[in-house]
Each structure stands twice: as C-alpha cells, then as structure tokens.
Design a protein around this nucleic acid. Structure first.
Lengths: 225, 225
DNA sequence: AAATAAATCAAATATACATTTAACTTATCA
DNA sequence: TGATAAGTTAAATGTATATTTGATTTATTT
C-alpha cells in the first residue's frame, strides 16, 4: 500500500473546519457546497471525493467540532470529584456556558439548529454524545437534592438548570454574530459568562434547596453523597 | 369598486393556515410552495397572486398564527391584576407553556426555528410582538424581587424563568411530532403542563427569594408592588 | 345578457445547486 | 525513468422549485 499524499489530508481538514463554521452559521439546507469549498480553498468536487456527499460532510464536521470542543471544556469543568457538590455544579454550569460562548466552537450552533429543524442526520451521534453529559448533571442534582436520580423532582431540576444554560447564551452567540445592538430587554444580559454562571448556580441551588425533603435548614456546603 | 368574490378570501385563509403548519414543521427553506398549495387545495400560482411571494406568505402566516395564539392564551394567564404576584407568576408561566404545547398553535415552532436559523424576515414583527410579553414578566419579577426593573438581578431572574419555559416544551413538541419514544433522560419529563408549570414556579420563586435584599424571611404572599 | 374584474389553472421559465465526469497533476515506487 | 494511484480541476448534468405567463372560469354590475 502506497503512502498517501499529504495534501489529501490537508484539504480534508480544511473542508471539515470550513464546513463546521458555515453549517453552524447557516444550517444544513442554507449552506452550499460551493461556499464551503471556496472558504476551504478546494474544488467543489472535493466534497464528493473526500466524504461522499454533503450529508456525510455534515455529520463528520459535527463530530469533529464536538470532539474538539469537549477536549477543551471537559463537562465537569475540571472540578475534582471530591469537591463539594455546590462547587461541582458551578463547574458544570460554567463548562457548558464556556463551550457555548466560545466563538471558535461551532458544535452548539449546529446542535441548536438540529433541535429546531432536524435533518435527522445527527440524531444518533448527538444522542450518544450529549446523553452522558446530561446524565452527569442529573447525578449531581440527585446528590444535591437527596433523592434518587429516577425521581421526577431530580429530572425537573436538572431540566431547569440545563434550560438556564442554553437559553441566554444562544441569544448571546447570535448577537455576537449579527453585531446587532441589544435594543430589546431579551438580550440585555451580562457579556461576562462568569456572572451568568454565578447567577444560574445561586438561583438553581436555591430552587433545589426548596425542594429538599425533610431538613429545611442545612449548611450550604457539605451535602452527603 | 366591485365587491370581492368570496372564494378569494377563502383560499387566502386556507393558504395562511396551511403555511403556518408546514412552515412550523419544516422551516422556511425546507417547505415548498407546492406542498402548501396542495394542502390548501390551491394552485401554486395562488401564493404569488395573494401574497406576492413565499417570503411574504411566511411573514403573514406567522402574524396570523401569533395573533390567534395570543387571543386564546393571554400572557397574564387570566389572573386578575390585583392577585398576589406569586399567583400571577404562575399564571404567566402556565400561559407560555400552554401556548407552546397546544398542537394547534404553530407560532412558537416558527419562533424557535427563526431563533436558531434566522431568515431575517421576522426580526421586526417578532421583536414587536414578543417584547411586551417579556416586559410584563420582567415587571412582575421586579415586584417579587423588590428591585427596579433595570437592575441586572431582575433581568437575570426573568431570563431564568423564560428559559425554563422554553427549554423543555420545545422538546416535548418535537417528540409529539416525530412520535419518538422518550429513550433519553433529556426527554423524560411530565406530559402534564400543569406539573411542569408548578415546578418552574416553585423553583423560580425559591431562586428569587434567595436574591431578595435584606429581609431574609418574609411571608410567601403579600409582596408590595 | 353583455361587460368587467377577480380568481384559478396548467404549463413554461428560470435559477440555484448537488453531484458526476473526464481530463489533468503530482507524488511515490519499481 | 516511467508506471500507478491519489488528488485536483473546470465544465457538464440533472433535479428541485420559486415565479411568471396567458388562457380560462366565475361572480358581480349595469
């Protein structure tokens, strides 16, 4: 077997990164192979050659973007396993937000578009990738709440937290992209992710504590595993 | 000026309702005029005749769907102005959720797709329609929190509430459409909107109380306006 | 009943775009 | 050096679909 020409892998890479960015900005249907190839400095036929089709490129570019993003921002936020759960919650929230807000990361834009307007092409890979991250959050909430992970309260609280992470930041991303001024009250939120994460953590911890069984007053830290 | 033929307004109507449903399901780019016209029992040329273009039909069908939806589910949830703010919050949350979950209402699907993948066609009308609703929620939060509406804490809490309303229900809608079973932990949430609304209200009231200035313990109702 | 304008229709037109083709280039190995 | 295969290219092909056209139908008015 002959050694591959190095150029081949290079255009493949260029196509993947260009595709990730443009698919994230315009969605599957609105991006043309021509635009991707132009940005990647490649011929339009190269997509068919390297990936087989626009659809296959879509899937591959998402995998590529997601893997990269996850390696930069690990889901637990780098907080050690033994730290108090409040701190670990803050770490997870911050990790999600950083991942969404990073202008170099495109996987969340694609995720969002796929949620709103599914092509069906990413259903399985997204499921497999996102599920364990959400499961980690659910387990943490279960710990904070003092209930089993299957209990409806746990799932509801986990949902509340996830929703607060996604909602505001997708707006922020869009605003950054389109350069529109924050005229509306919807968009006027802090540019600083830390501030947002602090708020969501505090807000959610209060919400969780209000749903804790029995012991109404307990110290803020030190919730048994 | 002659009186219009009654049939004309009828196909116009049929086009509007068919368009609302299909645009909501497939998004602007993926729906074809042919499909809308087939469902409306009209000729493909009728869109151009009655609305001028696919784009104009898109805008009109959203306006139509939104107006209808708002008249069925008023933003304040029908709770009297004088009721305690906790109750009014619950009413607003329930109204948003009912509006999203109603299978006859398509404006929220279009809203969501437009957020994820803006055509730009709905920016102004959506802004004008949604802004006052959100402002109402912000004022209510300001009252509950005992701070001015401009304060960052008020906006953050209002965001937290909005996000909790949107997040889970868009999933629910999609699930209902595609008939997929709730295999993942993301989707396994109560089918009952009331339950969801109760949770979000309780969770959020706790979050708000935790951010109240001074007076740590105050009765649940009776927060001065 | 004839005239007029609104409304509908089947078919034609035009455009955008994914994919294919077949020729061409370049690197590797005998 | 020349054969082979990977990689690249401009142009061709085919399909999907928004919009237009010109003919036709229908209701209203005089």
């Amino acid at each position: 077997m002959r050694k591959q020409r190095s150029d081949g892998q290079e255009t493949r890479q260029n196509l993947l990164t260009a595709a990730g960015e443009i698919f994230a900005r315009k969605g599957f249907r609105d991006t043309t192979i021509a635009e991707i190839c132009k940005q990647a400095g490649a011929n339009t036929a190269s997509v068919s050659y390297h990936f087989g089709s626009k659809e296959a490129l879509y899937v591959e570019s998402w995998r590529y973007a997601f893997t990269r993003s996850l390696s930069i921002y690990p889901p637990d936020g780098g907080i050690p396993h033994g730290a108090p759960p409040e701190e670990r919650l803050h770490g997870r929230i911050l990790a999600i937000m950083r991942r969404i807000i990073d202008p170099q990361s495109h996987d969340f834009d694609i995720f969002h578009k796929e949620m709103a307007n599914p092509t069906g092409l990413l259903a399985k890979p997204m499921q497999e990738s996102v599920e364990p991250i959400f499961k980690g959050l659910t387990l943490l909430v279960s710990e904070l709440l003092g209930k089993e992970p299957q209990e409806p309260e746990v799932r509801l609280c986990a949902m509340s937290i996830r929703a607060q992470c996604f909602g505001p930041l997708l707006h922020a991303r869009r605003r950054k992209r389109t350069q529109e001024p924050p005229t509306t009250c919807i968009e006027s939120l802090p540019d600083d992710v830390e501030e947002l994460a602090d708020h969501v953590t505090r807000f959610s911890l209060a919400g969780i504590r209000a749903l804790r069984p029995k012991h109404p007053q307990q110290s803020n830290n030190e919730v048994g595993s």
